[in-house]
Design a protein around this nucleic acid. Structure first.
Length: 308
DNA sequence: AGCCAGGCTCTCG
DNA sequence: CGAGAGCATGGC
């Protein structure tokens, strides 16, 4: 199987980007960072496969190559896998204007140095982003991570890698087959179970295609997504950040973001959603979504420091 | 033990 | 309209 080379805009650090996707684990559901490679279990045209991305060179001048493994993988899908990886690793995104913008920012300048070359990783589908966001609603990061892993392991298609296993993100039919009881057993609340089953039905109905969202403005996407039960502004913004690459989105309703803003820019004085939104857009402008990614990278290091 | 987590919906003044 | 209850479960 020959490799495909992927073009990108530097700086790009594969390790930092992949570990952001895996919550610093070697394996997290469908994503892995193994032996220096980003590994992702994908289902393309009902075909389970592994996409493996290797990097050589430096962060400022990296070279990426894509390898595809799986049984009976037809050469004809190689191009779609390459496009998925390009999108999921935000390879076409230029970080430099953002770095320039935050040069004078007391917190973000430091964070962008620590995570230099972090491109905001994306989900494989809009459906995946919606479900992942709903899982994360209200509950702590630890609970959300446990639930996400449990869900992938129970409902995704297993693919063996390096003696371990990665699972594809469960498709809509897998959620529907699990049904109400199956999802409750995994630890979803009654409400979230209902939301996700409805969303799975919509996904199976073809309502979450990338192409349909691509031509919609942020406002239009928000309007469309928040019509769905279980999806509020916060969730819609996360979907835009995680699946649609809208790097201007700032989920100001997010408690963790409000806290970090309060601590670093308001001398611990609590800020509410409106204040956080006004601050973020005034300070980071159209890069507020990139600021979100980096702030969460930073927030996660705080938690790990606490735990470890 | 009890309270809070990377929200959202529904209900009730 | 705004305020408040309830939700699942892991960690402190």
């Amino acid at each position: 199987m020959c490799n495909i080379s992927l073009t990108l805009i530097p700086p790009f650090d594969l390790r930092v980007t992949a570990l952001h996707q895996t919550y610093s684990q070697s394996r997290f559901g469908a994503d892995g960072y193994l032996d220096g490679a980003y590994v992702r279990a994908l289902e393309i045209n009902s075909q389970p496969l592994l996409a493996v991305v290797h990097a050589t060179g430096t962060t400022d001048m990296p070279f990426l190559s894509l390898e595809i493994t799986g049984e009976g993988v037809l050469p004809s899908i190689r191009q779609s896998v390459a496009e998925s990886m390009t999108r999921m690793l935000s390879l076409d995104l230029d970080l430099r204007p953002f770095y320039t913008k935050v040069r004078g920012d007391s917190l973000l300048h430091q964070v962008t140095q620590s995570f230099y070359g972090l491109h905001p990783p994306q989900t494989a589908s809009v459906f995946e982003a919606i479900v992942m966001a709903i899982i994360g609603q209200q509950i702590s990061g630890a609970v959300a991570r446990a639930l996400r892993i449990r869900t992938a392991q129970a409902l995704g298609i297993p693919l063996v890698v390096d003696g371990g296993t990665l699972h594809t993100f469960p498709n809509a039919v897998a959620f529907m087959n699990a049904g109400h009881d199956g999802l409750r057993t995994l630890g979803f609340s009654n409400r979230k179970t209902e939301y996700i089953l409805d969303i799975a039905a919509r996904a199976a109905d073809g309502q979450f295609e990338f192409d349909d969202f691509a031509r919609l403005s942020n406002t239009e996407v928000t309007a469309r997504l928040t019509q769905i039960r279980g999806v509020g502004t916060w969730t819609a913004q996360w979907v835009m950040l995680r699946a649609l690459g809208r790097t201007d989105q700032f989920p100001a309703g997010d408690l963790a973001l409000q806290r970090v803003i309060s601590q670093h820019y308001f001398d611990e004085r609590p800020v509410d959603q409106a204040e956080a939104a006004a601050f973020a857009h005034e300070r980071w402008g159209k890069y507020a979504g990139l600021a979100t990614t980096y702030l969460f990278a930073y927030i996660r290091t705080l938690r790990m420091r606490k735990a470890g």
